[in-house]
Nucleic acid binder design. Sequence first.
DNA 1: TCAAAGGTTATGATATATCATAACCTTTGA
DNA 2: TCAAAGGTTATGATATATCATAACCTTTGA
Lengths: 72, 72
Amino acid sequence: MNEEEKKFLKRVGFNIAKQRKDKGFSQLDLCSIIKMEKSNLSSIENGRQNVTSLTLLKISKAIGVKVNLFFE
Amino acid sequence: MNEEEKKFLKRVGFNIAKQRKDKGFSQLDLCSIIKMEKSNLSSIENGRQNVTSLTLLKISKAIGVKVNLFFE
DNA sequence: TCAAAGGTTATGATATATCATAACCTTTGA
DNA sequence: TCAAAGGTTATGATATATCATAACCTTTGA
């Protein structure tokens, strides 16, 4: 994974965390709604993991934002 | 995978194919640029595969569009 | 027409996302 | 302060994205 890709995943993770907090959800809240491991969500929000489309869909539905916002 | 998720992947795949064609790339062109198997790209464009963020980044860079467009 | 380019489907291998669990660190509110 | 809530990191298991290859189907332009 090159630097640009690392940056990209960090940005996506940051955006997910921002939207989640703005909507008033803790990681634990969100994980229990979408049945995801909290270790996993942490990795995604910190840009350590290459999150898949379906996981983005689940998160976006749970917190009520468009998937688009994760790629701003 | 539920129906909504299937629909979502089909939409993402359709959008990728549309942007690719609009920009004048064949599947083979795009695959050779990003070093992806054509079987793979076909699966993604047909919504049979849960494409990852990094693959979306690679595609978007190669054809010169924003990742956002794949989630419209 | 039909050959070439483009795309699909199948199969087995490999890499990695996610699960499951646990220990630990950090933040926050009383 | 400090206990509880929230978040991070590590490890091994499982599911699946992607690779590699091949055969085949579809579209298109001469």
